[in-house]
């Protein structure tokens, strides 16, 4: 494994090292908010010790980015594949428009996480949030899977206006308190088929977060699903 001290490196320099380094496993220590780390990355396994800055992991194609610490905004923007692990909190717009790959956040996320996630064919994005989500979780969600694990057992792990404009995909929320339905979005108790669908990701999350899978998965959970894929169908008249 190659180890670099990132204290005096810019985000651009970090990315140049990632591209040039022959060792597929690279660790950067002392990262303090450098932006764009691993943007468009393919194949490498990168560990960031510190705070990953805005738009890290954007357009990521494959490989893995592990952040030991918190991450800032727009992590995994338009991510295409690969995995991102963040042990701490993550800022706003986490996983914006991601269409593939997986993001695991150990603690809370900010506003608009998973906004406009979408899927096509085998590409199905997954965002697993360990803590609670800020407002507008899954806004315009068009596909993929969002799981709110709520490890701290908050009474209500969702903010305001979750699933606004959702027209595809699924949100699974572990909570004792049933979320209120929203316009065009139905809420139901989690079923066996949902557990089957989320098992792989929940197991990976629990391993990552050092939690016991069976005690987490057996908690009470609710599913948010859109009632149709064409929310605007009846909005217009030809003129």
């Amino acid at each position: 494994m190659a180890i670099y001290d990132a204290a005096s490196l810019s985000g651009r320099e970090i990315n140049e090292i990632i591209k040039k380094e022959m060792d597929a496993k690279i660790t950067f220590t002392g990262v303090n908010g450098q932006r764009f780390i691993c943007d468009g990355m393919k194949d490498k396994l990168v560990t960031v010790d510190g705070v990953a800055g805005n738009a890290s992991g954007a357009y990521m194609d494959s490989g893995e980015l592990s952040v030991i610490g918190n991450a800032q905004d727009a992590i995994g923007d338009t991510m295409n594949g690969g995995r991102i692990f963040i042990s701490g909190r993550c800022g706003d717009a986490t996983g914006y428009a991601m269409r593939g790959g997986e993001i695991y956040v150990g603690k809370d996320v900010g506003y608009r996480a998973g906004i406009h996630m979408k899927e096509y064919g085998d590409d199905k994005p997954v965002l697993v949030i360990g803590g609670i989500a800020g407002d507008f979780l899954g806004e315009y969600q068009a596909g993929g899977l969002i799981i709110v694990v709520n490890t701290e057992r908050a009474a209500c792990p969702l903010g305001e206006d979750y699933a606004a404009g959702m027209h595809g995909g699924k949100i699974v929320v572990f909570t004792d308190c049933q979320p209120a339905p929203r316009a065009g979005v139905q809420v139901r108790e989690v079923a066996a088929r949902d557990i089957k669908e989320i098992e792989e990701y929940m197991r990976r999350f629990c391993t990552f977060a050092s939690l016991d899978y069976s005690s987490e998965i057996s908690r009470k959970a609710y599913v948010l699903e859109p009632m149709g894929r064409n929310p605007y169908k009846r909005l217009y008249v030809n003129n």
Binding site: R99, H116, K118, E119, Y120, D123, Y140, A142, G143, G165, H167, G168, R229, N230, P231, Y232, K233
Partner: peptide, 14 residues
Amino acid sequence: ATRMIPEGSDAISP
């Protein structure tokens, strides 16, 4: 296929 969204799904640009 080109937009990378399922057939029949509205393509919404916020």
